[in-house]
């Protein structure tokens, strides 16, 4: 049974059919690259998985149970987390504060005053960063961090929530070569932990470096869905641009 299974998903915005009947499955520990040109419907598809809005037709199943999300919180409660392109971090807070934002832990000081448990949160964050083999320091403000470290903070947050499926939107766009390697390493760590990752990216080398399978969308339809070993960057480029109709 697939961890996440979409069948016949359709989404229309007025007269435009942004997603026109897409089927898709992902297994635990699988990394799937979702590719397509701008307007191909990949972000609409991902937004439905993340719970931003429900599809007009078709069903979404998580571990065999049909779900219908109206708000991101509902998707999150089923173990689906999103790492946003702009990373959604607060620059003025520390890495640890960001990891625990909205899920703060507290304790009683002197037995009766509720206070935030900073030490506990920092230790847990440190453990999460170690798990991800990232050099990120839990107590440092995010403002001073590199792109790779910021990704680690955003991913640590999803780990804290015990996510089963992580959606990553262009995690390697606009960061340096060294940081790209850091991020790809992070994705390998997630795979080792048996977490499913859907990677939306325009960067062909990154997708081929970490993904097990590649899904290409064009004009709201899935035009290819095959293991990375059975395809090539040239074929994928052709599929994205429409030079090759389907594979």
């Amino acid at each position: 049974m697939a961890l996440l299974s979409l069948s016949g998903i359709v989404k229309r915005f007025g007269a435009i059919e942004a997603v026109a009947g897409v089927d898709f499955q992902i297994e635990p520990g699988e990394v799937v690259g979702l590719m397509g040109d701008n307007g191909a419907g990949k972000s609409t598809l991902v937004k439905m998985i993340a719970g931003n809005f429900p599809p007009d037709a078709g069903t979404i199943e998580v571990e065999g149970r049909p779900v219908r999300f109206h708000k991101p919180v509902e998707a999150r409660s089923m173990g689906i987390e999103v790492v946003y392109q702009d990373l959604a971090l607060c620059d003025n807070l520390t890495a640890s504060d960001n990891v625990f934002l909205g899920r703060e832990r507290w304790r009683l000081a002197f037995g009766f005053i509720p206070v935030l448990n900073y030490r506990g949160m920092r230790e847990r964050s440190r453990a999460l960063f170690e798990e991800l083999k990232s050099e990120t320091r839990a107590g440092d403000p995010v403002r001073r961090m590199s792109g790779g470290q910021r990704q680690a903070v955003a991913i640590a947050r999803t780990r804290l929530a015990q996510a089963k499926i992580i959606l990553m939107d262009e995690p390697t766009a606009a960061i340096s070569v060294r940081q790209v390697k850091e991020v790809l390493d992070l994705i390998h760590r997630l795979k080792e932990q048996n977490i499913a990752v859907i990677l939306i990216s325009h960067r062909m080398p990154d997708v081929f470096a970490v993904c097990d399978r590649i899904v290409v969308m064009r004009r709201g339809r899935k035009v290819a869905d095959k293991p990375i070993a059975d395809t090539s960057p040239e074929e994928v480029t052709g599929l994205i641009t429409g030079a090759i109709h389907s594979a």
């Binding site: 999150r76 607060c90 003025n92 807070l93 909205g102 507290w106 509720p114 206070v115």
Partner: peptide
């Protein structure tokens, strides 16, 4: 020392991020 405090700083730091994380 309270969640309200963390949240108010988060809203000022990056309102969009705060909203996305459920603040």
């Amino acid at each position: 020392l309270t969640r309200w405090g963390r949240h108010i700083y988060a809203v000022g730091g990056n309102e969009q991020a705060a909203r996305l994380t459920g603040v």
